[in-house]
Design a protein around this nucleic acid. Structure first.
Lengths: 339, 339
DNA sequence: TGGTTTTTGAGGTACGTACCTCAATATTGT
DNA sequence: ACAATATTGAGGTACGTACCTCAAAAACCA
């Protein structure tokens, strides 16, 4: 049997009321009494039963995922996983909700965060581009008692404060695959991004270039193409770049929504002619991998991302340590064989 | 507020006692009353509060990991992760223990399982080679009310009953990497296994061969070398095979303990000369990957394996559904870049 | 020393569920 | 219609913790 507060009271030679005061940081306990209780906790290995505590205080956790307004299949995957989490953690008192905000307006995001009520929301997973306004709003949120984590993209203040992959490493991984798959045959590599104004894109590109430039001198990486998320523009700029560069051997799509650029790329390259590496597993990229239109996918598990964010926020609410190895989001490499 | 048993009783027009009888499958309730309650559950979306239920019945979960007696670094990783789980799930009432048995003796394993007491153990994660005795003992365990899962290796009766990777796919992934990294240069591929008498090894080999034979005709896969887990023998057979085959271009170590064979392989090949692909991330393989002695690692996350086994056993104890996407163990591919 | 303030203890209720007992109905068979 | 049986209800206690009140004890100050 695990020791309870009663055992703790007996061991410390105090009453249950005092144990309660110490455990919950209430005032009116002398320093040496606190110490006696703390020592007793250590001695008998008391671990607070969080389930019972939450039951007693009727606590439930309400978390909010703040996601971009616009997106394609990757965003949809995230939404689906958030729904799953609600179903799976339903037996505990946990609810995850979603709010979607136009991501390009930091002011609006900051305002939204400002308006959140600590009585309504316990934690926020924030997927938003880096900006001073948002960073400040995030800090203020924490000061008001709402826990926050940066989700997938955004400002990384510390390891514990970010749920997502190391984008520099992800880019380097893509670069390594591109190089090793290229079989030392010379050619150009096209890089397609949604925008190069985000830190994520810059880091991926940087990691990619580092590996390719250092180890694969036969490959020439072209300047990044920016789709801006516009389908028509995407099609046009890819087509014109291919027209100008007949010797494109590889394509690296570093944005998380690969569907639109991939459609054009597929039309322009004969299967097996060009190496294509893209990010994120979605119904579209999965099918493209199976039909050999993509050679490799670099991904992060959306389910893991969502659950990790929830676990981290929960641990913070409970002032508990997290299990670091569980929350490390892996940079996965997917071929048709290990889908 | 989530509906409680009281709300459920009111909705169904029965007493709390009857709700309790229905929820816990007690006898003495008429069929149509059960139906009324069930309908009310659906209607108000009642979800049993498992924390409160476990509190009331002072339930705790005791799980046992049955692992091989002998092993190297991968086994050590597993043990470490089991320890972590105990620390992390300590606030809930869960304890994971380990028993290690000589894996080559199915009779002894069956006897051990037979001796387990349902009052002492709620579930067993069983890592043992396939054998009729063990399979029967496992079935008898379940009939006696102890939940079981096959862990990492062993008999796969169903998807839900196995925690580990698809070894055929893992082998195929290794084959794909070997082929694509080989740059169409002809040569032989050495395959090193601990034993080819286990289903896991056979499946990995099969998957590997399928891909290499189909898509990379320049590569010739040699017959599997069996180390039998003996260090000296391992060294000898690898050396003599290399002596007989000067044109070995690739080495695939398919056993989960790669350290010993890898040491010999490293001595025999100049860096960058031979492609080396191994399984499982351990301190040794990780270092070898960083120093370019290994080109790629195919791994399964030991922490994920352990936690998944625990979650599955727990869900079974609670007669709850699992979240399938969370329990799918991924075949990970590791390079130096995405360690 | 007496009074004031601080600290501690004792006891209660509550959370949502399990499990028990006993009495009160309802249903069944004859 | 009666007894026998099956079903249901009412009420209690318990799990481990939170949070409340009130009184008792201890420490502090002048």
């Amino acid at each position: 049997m695990r020791p309870t507060t009663k055992d703790l009271a007996k061991e410390a030679g105090v009453s249950l009321a005092t144990v309660d005061r110490v455990l919950n940081d209430r005032t009116g306990v002398r320093g040496d009494t606190v110490k006696r209780v703390s020592e007793a906790i250590e001695k008998i290995g008391f671990i607070r039963n969080i389930s019972a505590a939450n039951l007693a205080r009727s606590k439930s956790y309400r978390f909010l995922f703040l996601l971009p307004r616009t997106g394609d299949q990757f965003l949809f995957e995230l939404l689906a996983r958030i729904g799953e989490v609600n179903a799976a953690f339903g037996s505990e008192a946990m609810r995850a909700e979603v709010a979607q905000i136009h991501e390009s307006d930091p002011h609006q995001i900051a305002n939204f965060l400002e308006a959140l009520d600590p009585d309504t929301v316990d934690g926020v997973a924030l997927m938003a581009p880096e900006s001073p306004q948002v960073r400040d709003a995030k800090l203020r949120l924490e000061r008001r008692g709402i826990e926050t984590v940066a989700f997938i993209s955004g400002q990384i203040t510390s390891d514990e404060d970010f749920v997502g992959i190391d984008n520099h490493a992800a880019g380097a991984t893509a670069g390594r695959l591109m190089g090793r798959f290229s079989e030392r045959r010379p050619g150009k590599v096209l890089v397609i991004a949604e925008t190069m104004h985000s830190r994520d894109s810059l880091e991926r590109r940087l990691g990619f270039d580092e590996v390719v430039n250092a180890d694969y001198p036969d490959l020439t990486v072209l300047p990044s193409l920016e789709t801006r998320g516009e389908a028509e523009r995407t099609d046009q700029i890819i087509r014109s770049t291919f027209a100008r560069n007949p010797d494109i051997r590889g394509v690296y799509i570093l944005s998380s929504e690969a569907r639109v650029p991939l459609q054009t790329v597929t039309q322009l390259t004969k299967a097996g002619q060009s190496l294509v590496i893209a990010h994120e597993r979605t119904p579209f990229t999965e099918a493209a991998l199976l039909s050999r239109q993509i050679d490799a996918l670099i991904t992060q598990d959306p389910g893991h991302l969502v659950r990790s964010a929830v676990r981290i926020l929960r641990a913070r609410c409970d002032r508990r340590e997290i299990l670091a190895s569980q929350e490390k989001i892996r940079i996965e490499i997917l071929f048709a064989e290990n889908l």
